[in-house]
Amino acid sequence: MKNVRQKACAAAFVFASAFGGTGQAQQGGGDPIERELDTYRSMMKSDPWSNPGMLDVDRGEALWKTPAGPSNVSLDQCDLGLGPGKVDGAFATLPRYFVDADRVMDVEARILWCMEKLQGFDRVKLLTRPHPSAGMPVKVLGAIATYVAYRSNGRSFSATFSHPKEREALALGETLFFRRTGPMDFACSTCHADSGKRIRLQPLPFFSKPDEARKNLGEWPAYRVSTAHVMTMQHRIYDCFWQMRLPEVELGSDVSIALISYLVKQAEGGQINIPGMKR
């Protein structure tokens, strides 16, 4: 743990230098802004231990194994789809239908379920302000999700979407992805409808293209430098809806799970490599 922290501190220094704008362009391309951004991205990714998100992988592991909640039990008996307590490779098979809950769940919805049903936490409290504000660490649920996702690193997205409810989630997700909503007329596809586009300087993935979807999905949960915390996929979608001028979407809602199902399907076969690194 100490080692991780030291490395993360060293990493923070590297980021500071990158932000100072002294990085030399390494990759081709005519646009000087794009070259600077490429340098910055490659510096962030060059050493996996330079990723502060690793701290939350460790924190999530401790949280998974430590008795907590009114029932004072650990998440040892939490079934992520491969059997109680089986964490390795579970994230790669999600989202999936769970008989006990009678619904399709992504990793965060499933951990939420376990915290409620096994540990006895109050669901309403878990769903109140579930995402960190800028500069604050990812919350307990997000840290556990980061640990669980990390334990699928090197595996490929392989959710089967064979159960009728899984296919239904996929269909809903696809429809929602292209559905214009809110006072700005935005759909997900407004920003993610083409390759190589940016909002200000932020590059946007084009999810209809499998290689872009695979690369992007394989990086979530990700450490976000601009807000200095790990951001989960549910948080990412919450933020997209915020930008679309919609109200606050509930973590683990059928809508967010449907969208995640659609994105994971687009990324099918892509390798998981988390925590990713984002601006």
């Binding site: 296919r167 239904e168 989630a169 996929l170 269909a171 809903l172 997700g173 696809e174 429809t175 929602l176 559905r179 909503t181 209809s208 919609l246 109200p247 606050e248 979407v249 509930e250 809602s253 059928d254 809508v255 967010s256 449907a258 659609y262 399907k265 687009q266």
Partner: peptide, 26 residues
């Protein structure tokens, strides 16, 4: 990639129900 075409889950009424449930604090 069009999963939606085969499904009834994409009926506008059902989408609105799902949307209302997803934004309980609206």
């Amino acid at each position: 990639a069009s999963y939606a075409q085969q499904m009834e889950a994409t009926d506008e009424g059902r989408i609105e129900t799902a949307m209302h449930a997803a934004f309980p604090e609206a």
